[in-house]
Design a protein around this nucleic acid. Structure first.
Lengths: 143, 143
DNA sequence: TGATTTACTTATCAAATGATAAGTAAGAGG
DNA sequence: CCTCTTACTTATCATTTGATAAGTAAATCA
């Protein structure tokens, strides 16, 4: 097994994933938030409740900048900050109702584009895709 | 086959790909160029020769901004611009020698991290990974 | 040949992002 | 109790990035 050849395949693959992700998510984001704010909301959506520190380290941004962006999201009423009752330095971040509504819309838009993309795939194709996603997530893109 | 469930799997998967890509490529970029400039060089590396317009549309950036960044890369002697002899409005972009050297270093660094990531994978695992990459690229992340 | 389109450049401005210093307040450890 | 560490905030600044207007020069088209 030539690992170098596999590496080049991976480079090409990740480029495709980035391209297609861009294609699927274009216009999904509301104009009232920035790209970084959208990525933060996306992370909160799938991981809530999360602390500010967790967001900071998972999104690879500094704590001060994370704090600033969360303040902006809070001012836009898209997230709620809930103080931890045990450790009062911590606070848990959740989507607010407005945030839920916004992210539901975004995900619906992305899902629509996804469905367009796989509309011609057979059931066998879809099963192949699912298995392939599982294998790669487990064996290559594990965290 | 539940396409909605598959969609959620895809969301989780693309997040993992982004995370791992970030992990593999950290420190791969020279400090003398910006993130966007690095992405442009990466695109030129795998697609050269390319025109300014092609870079602009494939990287989803405006022609003026693309032109500016290419000028900066040219000033740093990382790319060469070659006038098209047939259509004199066009110019083809290539890596310069210095650009080749820089990108070879970057790719070597990324490959090293990739090899660390798969060092415990068996030959069967690697074959599974390769097949999965092929399937997804063909059936889901096609351009 | 004149009008239109294409490929690209220059210039300018605003906004987003990143980096860093300095601070507060609470928990943890000796 | 005192020190250290953790979790987070505020403030500030530089840089990067994005958007837009206006221009040049070459090709195409009618």
């Amino acid at each position: 097994m030539d690992k170098s050849a596999l590496f080049y395949k991976l480079v090409s693959f990740t480029n495709s994933v980035h391209q297609v992700t861009h294609e699927l998510t274009r216009n999904a984001k509301s104009d009232s938030i920035t790209q970084v704010q959208y990525k933060i909301l996306e992370y909160i959506t799938v991981s809530q409740p999360v602390t500010t520190s967790e967001i900071s380290s998972c999104m690879n941004m500094s704590l001060p900048n994370t704090s600033r962006e969360l303040r902006k999201l809070s001012e836009k009423r898209l997230i709620d900050k809930i103080d931890d009752t045990e450790d009062r330095r911590k606070q848990y971040i959740r989507l607010s109702n407005d945030g839920e509504i916004m992210m539901n819309k975004s995900f619906a838009s992305i899902e629509t584009r996804f469905l367009e993309r796989v509309q011609n795939a057979s059931n066998d194709d879809l099963e192949d895709i699912e298995k392939a996603l599982d294998i790669l997530q487990k064996k290559l893109f594990y965290q």
